[in-house]
């Protein structure tokens, strides 16, 4: 008989402190083990559940690893062409202004092919939430160089490391959109530790609540890992992220309530 260390006597509804939100479906996430996409999905879904807006929210899925996000969120969702999610969200919010609207995009989608849509939605001050998961690589297509790939970082299309003289520089699009008058909140978070997750959730909650104020884009970057693309086990990938990604993409609020954070 294997010892299970179960305590069935305390498993009562009043003692329940954490279970998967009902705003996520029971479909198994298509992400690799340890991927921050799953955690970020969960936070968005928990915020939607806690705000009671499951039937009043429309999400937009990108192209990339999270292309199937619509299978995981139990809300109405649209799948956008690569990079165009902010254009879809612009129309959805303008045509259904009483709905909560968010896009969920990776770094290739948002900061390369969709740069124009991102910047102009932010500059127009569309009253939407943009969730931006930045892992510095194209995950779904097999680990190619992304606009956010760090200098010197190897990928399948920068196998000897990103040589900025040849391949150009990583784009800090979050700092860039913070400069635009149409963004009301711009923050950079992570989901690798319990403390980071709790903080990121607060930021996502704030971003969704901002839509009620009708003051422009709330932009939440989540610096994340790509265990498969980085070719590291999940725990090691998180360590690599702390040591390499965070110095280049420092966590914290960049713009709050329409004001730059000093």
């Amino acid at each position: 008989m294997v010892e299970t260390f179960d305590k069935p006597e305390i498993r009562t509804p009043e003692n329940l402190v954490y279970s998967k939100t009902k705003v996520l479906t029971d479909n198994v996430l298509s992400y690799c083990p340890g991927c921050g996409h799953g955690t970020t999905h969960r936070l968005v879904a928990e915020v939607i559940e806690e705000m009671g807006i499951q039937n009043n929210t429309i999400g937009v899925a990108p192209v990339g690893c999270s292309v199937l996000a619509y299978n995981f969120f139990d809300i109405d969702m649209q799948q956008a062409a690569h990079g165009r999610a902010p254009a879809l969200a612009t129309a959805i919010k303008r045509l259904l202004p009483e709905r909560f609207v968010f896009t969920y995009q990776g770094d290739g989608d948002l900061a390369a092919i969709g740069t124009a849509e991102t910047i102009h939605a932010c500059n127009r001050g569309e009253n939407i939430v943009i969730i931006f998961v930045n892992n510095g690589i194209y995950g779904m297509t097999g680990g190619q160089m992304a606009p956010t790939t760090l200098p010197g970082m190897p990928t399948s299309t920068s196998p000897y490391g990103r040589d900025t003289q040849i391949m150009g520089n990583p784009l800090k699009i979050t700092e860039l959109v913070a400069q635009l008058p149409g963004t009301y909140m711009v923050t950079r978070q992570a989901v690798h530790t319990p403390a980071a997750v709790r903080k990121a959730k607060k930021a996502i909650r704030q971003a969704f609540e901002n839509q009620i104020l009708n003051k422009g884009v709330s932009f939440v970057e989540v610096v994340s890992n790509c265990n498969s693309g980085w070719k590291l086990p999940p725990v090691k990938a998180n360590e690599w992220m702390v040591n390499h990604m965070f110095p280049f993409y420092p966590l914290g609020d960049i713009k709050i309530n329409g004001e730059m954070v000093k």
């Binding site: 305390i10 009562t12 402190v17 279970s19 939100t21 992400y31 955690t39 969960r42 319990p194 997750v197």
Partner: peptide, 21 residues
């Protein structure tokens, strides 16, 4: 286990349910 839920909070796949008493 003290039911702190840290494990569930970081679990990307939401597989952990937590009780505390």
């Amino acid at each position: 286990c003290i039911g702190c839920a840290n494990c569930a909070v970081v679990c990307p796949d939401g597989v952990i349910t937590v009780y505390r008493a």
